[in-house]
């Protein structure tokens, strides 16, 4: 399930929309320090920290989508365990 937070950069919001389709991931908006929030996987891995002002929003969006592909099997692993 994904929270309702919107990032100031459209590229990152587009990435969040894709993450919304992955039920094992949760987007959390927190606004602490330089962090807009984070994306958490049910596997308990270190969450992906989303910067409020990344140097390049397109690359940051790409990174969160790339990270999500690495967690694509986490839901299946949880079911099997």
């Amino acid at each position: 399930m994904v929270g309702r937070g919107r990032h100031q950069y459209n590229e990152i919001n587009a990435a969040f929309r894709r993450l919304r389709e992955i039920p094992t991931l949760t987007v959390v908006e927190s606004h602490n320090g330089h962090r807009w929030g984070w994306v958490r996987c049910i596997c308990g891995a270190t969450p992906f920290k989303v910067w409020s002002t990344p140097r390049n929003a397109g690359n940051h969006a790409k990174a969160v989508v790339t990270w999500a592909t690495g967690h694509a099997r986490c839901g299946k692993s949880e079911e099997e365990s």
Partner: peptide
Amino acid sequence: QEADLLYEAGLDDCAVAGGPDGSTFLMCD
């Protein structure tokens, strides 16, 4: 706090994240 220090050190073009194997890494561009 350390994540913020990493950002301030110039790593705003890297993302802090972890893998299902328990590792933590910076994804850099």
